[in-house]
Amino acid sequence: MGKTHDLIIDQSRWNGEEILKSSKYDTALGLNMAEDARKLADGHISEEAFVAKYQESVEKEFQQTLAVQANETDHSGVRWGMVIDLRKCVGCETCTVSCKAENRTPPGVSYNQVFVKEEGTFPNTSRTNIARPCMHCDKPPCASVCPVRATYKADNGIVIQDADRCIGCRYCMVACPYGARTFDFGESYDEMTGYEQVQAPEHGMDRGKREDGKAPVGTVRKCNFCFHRLERGEEPACVETCIGDARYFGDLNDPDSTVSQLAASDRAFRLKESAGTQPRVYYLR
C-alpha cells in the first residue's frame, strides 16, 4: 500500500521548470515572474516594482501590456452592512465554524453564534434561528463605555476592536446588548498541531504566531466583518460559506446595492431596535 501512495505523490509533484520548457515561451522569464509574483503576494515587493521589472519583457514575449491594476479595493465612502435572511437560514452553524477557521479564534472565543429557539408543542411548533455576528452598531454602546477608546466606530461602518490598546476591563462586554463580545482567556486548541503557528490578520494586522505579546490574549475580541478579506475584495467568511445563501454583504451607503434594497424591504428588521444601538446587520423575517 505504502508504495502506491508514495508513487501517486511523487508523480503529482510537478517540476515547474520542466513544464515551462514544454511551452514556447521563455522558461527563465516564467520562473522569475513566478518567484516575484509570490513575493508580490506576500507583500515583499510592490505591484509598481513588479510591473516596472517585467513590463518590457512581457511586451516582447507575450505581446501584452503589463500595467498596474486599477485599485479595485478602493472602499472610500463605503459603509458596510449585512443582511441575514431568516427564511433561508437553516441553523447549521456553518457561519460559526467558518468564522472560527477564518479568524482562528481560540476556544471560548466566537465572533458568530447561532441561537435557536423552538416554540410551541407538536405539531404546532416553530423554530427560529438567529445568526448573530457583531451588529457593528452605528451607536455602539461598547465603544462609548470603553475607557481607552480601544473599540471605536470606523468611517467604513465597522466597529473596530484594537487588541493592542485594550486593557481587558470587559466593560464593553457587559455593555453590549447582543452578547457579541468574548474575552480571550489565552486558551488554545493545543490538541491541534500547529495551532499557534499563525493568527488571522484581523484588521490587516499580521500578528504572527499566537505567542505572548503578539496574541490578543487578555483582551476582548469580536467580529470585524472580516476586514482583511474585504480589503482583498472578498466577502466575510460567514457570507461566503453560508450554505443557505442566507447572508448578503455590501455597501449600505449605495442605495442600489443588494443589501440596501433588502434592508429597505418590509421584511427587514434589526435586533433590539429599542436599545437605540442602530445595528448595521439587518434580518429578513
Binding site: 463605555v145 475607557p147 481607552v148 485594550c166 486593557i167 481587558g168 476591563c169 470587559r170 466593560y171 483582551t219
Partner: peptide, 20 residues
C-alpha cells in the same frame, strides 16, 4: 484587568463618554 501591563493606558487615553 485582562492586560495588567496596560493599566496605564487608562491614564494615557481618555474617552469622554466612558464613565470608567
Amino acid at each position: 484587568l485582562g492586560r495588567m501591563d496596560r493599566a496605564f493606558n487608562a491614564m494615557t487615553y481618555w474617552n469622554v463618554l466612558s464613565v470608567l
